[in-house]
C-alpha cells in the first residue's frame, strides 16, 4: 500500500548541532515532506528523553543555546516555511521561569502553533492552556496547549483529557522515554482508538524509526511523530566529520550542513513513504 504519503511531525532540537546545522536539518525535514515541525527547546534536565535527545540538548546548551535563540529559530522557520506549522516542546521549568504568560506570549509571537510540555499535567498546568487561549486572541494564528496522553493512563483520566476538546493531543505510544523502538501492537492500536474518541487531532509518536512503523500507526493518527531518529541522523553526520573540518571554516560548515540536510531529507522521505 502506501501510495499516499504519511503525514509526519518531525522533531528537532533547537541549537543542535548548532544554529546553522539545526536550520539545515529543518530544511531537510521540510523538503523531505514533513507536514509539521516540532522544535524542542533544550532543558538542562530532560528526564523524559532518552540518550539521543538528552545528549543533543546538553550539547546545544554547552554551546550556549538559550530560550531566546530557540524561539528565534521558531520564528525563522515559521517565516521560511509559512505552510508548515511549528510546535514547541519543552519542560515545565523553562515555561514557568519567566512566567507562563510571558513564555506563551513569546512563543505565540514567534509563530508557534502549539506547546507540548510533558511535565505540566493538563489538570495542573499552571495556566498554560488559558495563557494560550489569551495569546491566540491577541496574536492571530492560534497557539494551543497540547496535552500528552500515555497508554498507562487510567481510563477515567484519559477520558478527562479527551473531554478538554483541545485541537490536538500528543499520544505517546508506549511507556518509557524517547528513543528506543516501539512495537506497534494490538494494545497500541486500542490505546490510539481510545485517544481518538474525542475528536482532537492526534499526533502519535515515541520510538518511530521506520516507514513500516509509521505506516502501522498512520491510520489511527492525524500525524506520526518522529524525533530521535532525526536527531540521530544529524549526530551521525556530525560524528562523521573529519577532525580538521571541525575547525569550522565557513566552507566546511557549509559542506557539513549540506550533508545534514541531505541525510535528514532521505530519512524523512523514507518514513513518509511508509
Amino acid at each position: 500500500m502506501s501510495v499516499e504519503r504519511i503525514p509526519l511531525m518531525a522533531h528537532l532540537v533547537a541549537g543542535y548541532p548548532d544554529a546553522s546545522g539545526c536550520r539545515a536539518a529543518a530544511r531537510g525535514l521540510v523538503e523531505g515532506g514533513a507536514t509539521y515541525l516540532e522544535v524542542q527547546i533544550p532543558f538542562s534536565d530532560p528526564s523524559a528523553d532518552g540518550p539521543t535527545i538528552r545528549d543533543a540538548c546538553s550539547s546545544a546548551l554547552e554551546k550556549g543555546s538559550s530560550v531566546k535563540e530557540s524561539l528565534a529559530l521558531v520564528a525563522d522557520l515559521h517565516a521560511t516555511y509559512p505552510e508548515i506549522p511549528v510546535f514547541v516542546m519543552t519542560y515545565a521549568s523553562l515555561v514557568f521561569a519567566p512566567g507562563i504568560v510571558t513564555f506563551v506570549d513569546a512563543a505565540a509571537k514567534a509563530g508557534a502553533a502549539g506547546l507540548i510540555v510533558p511535565d505540566l499535567p493538563f489538570d495542573a498546568d499552571e495556566g498554560l492552556a488559558q495563557a494560550c487561549v489569551a495569546a491566540s486572541e491577541k496574536i492571530p494564528g492560534a497557539i494551543c496547549s497540547i496535552p500528552v496522553a500515555a497508554p498507562s493512563m487510567k481510563p477515567i483520566r484519559l477520558a478527562a483529557m479527551i473531554a478538554l476538546g483541545r485541537p490536538y493531543i500528543y499520544a505517546a505510544l508506549r511507556a518509557g522515554i524517547t528513543g528506543a523502538a516501539t512495537e506497534i501492537n494490538a494494545d497500541t492500536k486500542m490505546f490510539l482508538s481510545a485517544v481518538n474518541k474525542g475528536g482532537s487531532k492526534i499526533f502519535g509518536g515515541f520510538g518511530i524509526r521506520s516507514g513500516a512503523q509509521a505506516r502501522a500507526v498512520a491510520p489511527y493518527v492525524h500525524a506520526v511523530v518522529a524525533g530521535s531518529v532525526f536527531v540521530e541522523t544529524v549526530s551521525a553526520v556530525v560524528l562523521a566529520q573529519s577532525p580538521e573540518s571541525k575547525t569550522a571554516s565557513a566552507r566546511s560548515l557549509q559542506i557539513r550542513n549540506e550533508a545534514i540536510r541531505r541525510a535528514v531529507y532521505k530519512k524523512a522521505k523514507e518514513i513518509i513513504a511508509g
Partner: peptide, 10 residues
C-alpha cells in the same frame, strides 16, 4: 504537586 509526565502518573 505532581508535575510528572502522564506515563508515570498511574
Amino acid at each position: 504537586g505532581r508535575y510528572v509526565p502522564e506515563v508515570l502518573r498511574s
